[in-house]
């Protein structure tokens, strides 16, 4: 167990992915460009992935890693459709600013 002192405790991964998730939330609230917002959503997904992998590694159960694999699958599909939507929006209104897209707002 002499090596154990050099290993990373699970708590640190908790703090890191919490911080990353909050940066993602902040980006979604902070920016007006829809592409940046999509990127911040990716950031949030990745912070959760990191936490799932950490828990899976520390509990010695590979189920969490399989879930991360499926989250990656869904994220890839989501990005493909989301960017196609953005291109179609850009063709119609000539910008990706979310404040212009307010027809369904009220």
């Amino acid at each position: 167990m002499e090596q154990a002192a050099h290993l990373v405790p699970l708590n640190w991964y908790l703090f890191l992915s919490t911080f990353l998730f909050c940066i993602g939330v902040m980006g979604v609230l902070f920016r007006r460009n829809a592409i940046i917002i999509l990127m911040c959503i990716e950031l949030m997904l990745n912070s959760v992935n990191l936490l799932l992998v950490a828990f899976s590694a520390y509990s010695g159960n590979s189920d969490g890693q399989v879930f991360v694999f499926f989250i990656m699958v869904v994220a890839a599909a989501e990005v493909a459709v989301g960017l196609a939507l953005l291109i179609s929006i850009y063709r119609n209104i000539g910008s990706t600013d979310i404040d212009v897209l307010n027809k369904l707002k009220w």
Binding site: A4, L7, V53, A57, G60, N61, V66
Partner: peptide
């Protein structure tokens, strides 16, 4: 809960997953 402190090393390999 009680997690193994040195994490299990073989669970993330290609074979296992």
């Amino acid at each position: 809960g009680d997690f193994a402190f040195p994490p299990a090393s073989d669970k993330g390999l290609v074979q296992h997953v």
